[in-house]
Amino acid sequence: MTSRAPRRSIRARRARSAAMVALTVVAALLATLPLVLILGLLLKQGASSLNWAFFTAMPKPVGETGGGMANALAGTLMLIAIASAIGLPVGIGAGMYLAEHRGGRLASVVRFLSDVLNGLPSIVVGIFAWQFLVRPVKHFSALAGGIALAAMMIPLVARATEEMIRLVPNSLREAALALGYPRWRTSLTVVLRTALPGIVTGALVAVARIAGETAPLLFTAFGNQFWSTSLTQPISALPLQIFSYAISPYEEWHSLAWAGALVLLALVLVISLIARYVTRSRFGHGHD
């Protein structure tokens, strides 16, 4: 396979090999460097501007110091709740269909399209939700934001569910059927139940992914300076608030943006870590 190359001494070839191995190590170091830089700075900047008021107080107008992001926090949690309420059942159901119709034509089409949907820019999903849900009723709403995020969750959850159900041995499904279980009962109480830890992980990964989304919310939830938990009113969210504070010219707002970013990242990381923990605790030794 290296026939084109003139015969090199074995020592030169070994040296070259070692050099390339070293280069991949450098690549790994370089790739993790930004992470360290970003996390370090977030901790430094965010922690210094983070206080109790951040969680409990409302935003203050320009010029007044202090204030917090209580409304944005509540908004983010609410948007996650709406998106999960729609996205999880649909995504899990679609994933079960995909897993149970492995070779089917519709399943192949759905699988492919959900991967395609997964790769679409979130801003396009935002435009869609705006045109479909906001424009006809002429005002922004939490519901539209939640639906836009759900649209992003569905393909993610569907594919994760499918993968996890595939890990359940077919013999278990057969055992349940042979016991006189109807198919639906086999799927729900045996197969889905066995795959549940993995599916929970997939769901949490999807939640972590949408929790930090900003672009779709610009067109749907829009943001709100006031406290709101109404489904039909515009609602604030952490990423939206971070964005508008970051591009503002005010020092106080910048430090609030850092605090918000730290909280948002902590939220995302905690969800991701729980996701990992759930899988590890159940599939700890069965995974290969």
């Binding site: 041995p169 013999s171 278990l172 057969e174 055992a175 349940a176 045996v190 139940r193 066995t194 549940l196």
Partner: peptide, 9 residues
């Protein structure tokens, strides 16, 4: 069946 198939959960 050939292999034992207890329901793991």
């Amino acid at each position: 069946f050939q292999r034992p198939t207890p329901f793991p959960t």
